[in-house]
Structures are given as C-alpha cells and as structure tokens.
Design a protein around this nucleic acid. Sequence first.
DNA 1: GTCTATAACCTGATAGAC
DNA 2: GTCTATCAGGTTATAGAC
Lengths: 203, 203
Amino acid sequence: MAKKKGEEPGLSTEEKIKAAAQRVFMKKGYAATRTRDIAEEADINLALLNYYFRSKEKLFDLIMMEKLSKFFGGIAPVLNDPGTTLEQKFTLVSNNYIDLLIANPDLPLFILSEVRTNPERFVSNLPVAKIIDSSFIKQLQERQPDVHPLHFLMNLLGLSVFPFIMRPVFRASGVMSDKMFKTRMEERKAAIPKWMVAMLKAR
Amino acid sequence: MAKKKGEEPGLSTEEKIKAAAQRVFMKKGYAATRTRDIAEEADINLALLNYYFRSKEKLFDLIMMEKLSKFFGGIAPVLNDPGTTLEQKFTLVSNNYIDLLIANPDLPLFILSEVRTNPERFVSNLPVAKIIDSSFIKQLQERQPDVHPLHFLMNLLGLSVFPFIMRPVFRASGVMSDKMFKTRMEERKAAIPKWMVAMLKAR
DNA sequence: GTCTATAACCTGATAGAC
DNA sequence: GTCTATCAGGTTATAGAC
C-alpha cells in the first residue's frame, strides 16, 4: 500500500494539483507525463486539472517558469554586484547553488532536459545575456587577461552544478549513496572557491 | 524546400531508419519522438520501422546502448591504466571527451536526460562502479590525501563535459555562437590538465 | 521488401449531471 | 467545485495485397 504523497490536508485542490504536477513533471519530463499521472498523484479527479489550469501545457509552463527563475534568478544579481570581490563571488555562487541543489537535486537536469527540446521558448526571455558585461566578467579579465573569462564562468558553474547532473548515474551505479553524495556536496562549498583561485593562477 | 537528411544513396533501408532514429531520438528524446517522425526523417514507409526493428522501444534500446558505450566506454580503460601518470590521465580524459563531444555535442544531455527517467534500466549494466578502485582513484589518494578522490573525478568530468550540457542555454541566449563555442572547447583541451594540477595543490 | 489500410489502444480535453 | 461519461484525435503496431 504505497502511501500517496500530496495528501497534506491544508492544501487546496488547486495547490494539490500544482504540487503533484511539479513532482511528476520533474521526475518524468513533459512529454512522458500524462495528465492522468498528475491527477493520480494529486489524488483528485482528472477533470479538475483542466478546470483549474486549462491544459497540460499551461500547467507545465507555469511550473517551468518558476523552476527557471529558481535556477537562473539567483545568479545574475551576484555576478552583477560591483561591490563584491572575485573571491566573494566564487563563494556566493557556489554556496548558493549547492544549498539550492541539495534541497532540489533534480532541478538542473529537469531544466536542461526541457530547455534542450525547446531552447528558444524557455531561454529567450531569460537574463542570461546580461552575464557577458557583468562585473564578474570584468573582474576576471583584469585578474587573468590570458584566459577568456567565460572559461572561469563555465568552471564555476560546472564545479557547482555538474555533480547534481551526474547524480542519477552515481546513484544507480552504486558509486555513491545519497548520504555520501550530500557529504561530498557540503565539502565542495568550502573547496570550490579555493579551486577557483588556484585555477586563476595556474599556468 | 528543406533538404532531407539521411538520403545518402549508399545506405540500406535498415541503415537509413537507424540513422534517422538516432537524429530524432537525440533531438527530441524517447517520449516526444513519434515513429512517424523517424519514418519521415528516413524517407521510408512507416511499416518498415516495425518490420526491421519490431518496435519503437527496441529501436531506441539499440541506439541507447550504442550511445552509452560511446559516452562511458572510453573512460574506464584510461582511468584503470596503471602505466600512466595522474597528469597523463587528466590530459587523456579531457582531450578524449572534448574531441568526442565536439563531434557529438548533444550526446551528454541526451544520455543523462534518458538515464534520469530510467536510471536502473540503463546504468545498472555499465562498468561505472569499477571506477571506485581504479588506478586513477589510487593515484589521487596518494597525491592529495586530504580531499576525497571523487571530488577530482567530478571536477575532471565537470570541466570537460559541463560546457556541452549548458550549450543549448548559451546558444539560445546568444552568449556564445557555435563557432565561438568550439574555439573555447579547443582551448580547454590544454587548459583543463593545468587546472586539475592547480586544484590538486590548492589549499 | 515495401506498400495501404486498419486495428487496438491511449491521451488530452470537455459536456453535463450533481 | 467535483464527478462520470465520453468524444475527437493521435499513436504504435500489424494484416494482407503487391
């Protein structure tokens, strides 16, 4: 008798559907998700999904936009702040991301999978382009003019986010348990800023 | 008048279907792909897909297994070779991956997206677990006993693979053109081994 | 081997009763 | 707001003619 999720009594029907949709979409992706899966997960009648959200696509867009701003929204202000040093930005970005992703491990792979199938639709209205002339990029150019600054942006994001992308592989292959994975990620919060500084000086 | 791909005259019907299926599956993923898409892309009759490959699922499994061994197969022998130094392994892994992914940029996101929806099915029979007691892990432990060796494995893979995972975002947001992206990736072949050495010494 | 036609099923969405 | 019943369209797969 599998205990259903989404049975918190305090939630309205609309909230129950949305919460269930988040879980199912995040797990299976848009195309593989059936509205019946969501209705079952939310423990509501199938017709109520369309009553509250009009269509599967509208419900998905609503959730996708929230996840996008969760994943990309936090980083822009940090990178654009001229009041922090490069080292401080390394720490802020990596620690913000790791904390966020420990709480939401499936977030990056969900977003990047869906973006892949529909890039222009979801990315076009994001403030990603602003990164190019951010304070972060300028500080990198001053500190290390020999290496293109985008390399260090990719390195910082890669060191912080990539382990969560590989997590399903580590998990299913038995390389790391969930507990061990979390321990490693906590260790990385202190390590990544040091590694970034070391890479800046490398030659 | 969109020119159809997969019209190379030398290919048999079976090969045309398989080649078309690779393109469509890689672009849209298993769930969003319709057998009609594949038949159209291959410019063959829909019924021939089932005649040659029995079902959509069997065709997908065939392709998925090939892609998995392409992505994971090359790394294990390198990491397990006791005859190469740590620095040589950094160079071999990063350069092998970057060359492979410049030729197949969509490979990692395709694999990781599909693995996510069905982890045990695709990962369980991979030799990923062998990495734990590989020569690479032992060499890392000797060189830097203070940091868990899996960190440096994640770093090496992240530095090499992660840019290709973010590529749809860079592309759609206009941060990097395809040509610029390739230039950066070529630069990383020389840079990543140096960065890895620098991270080993960091503190 | 290749085609047309169609079976059998599934999916998103809605009409209409309560 | 919530339910049952059902529609309309799409999907995989196959039977059978050529």
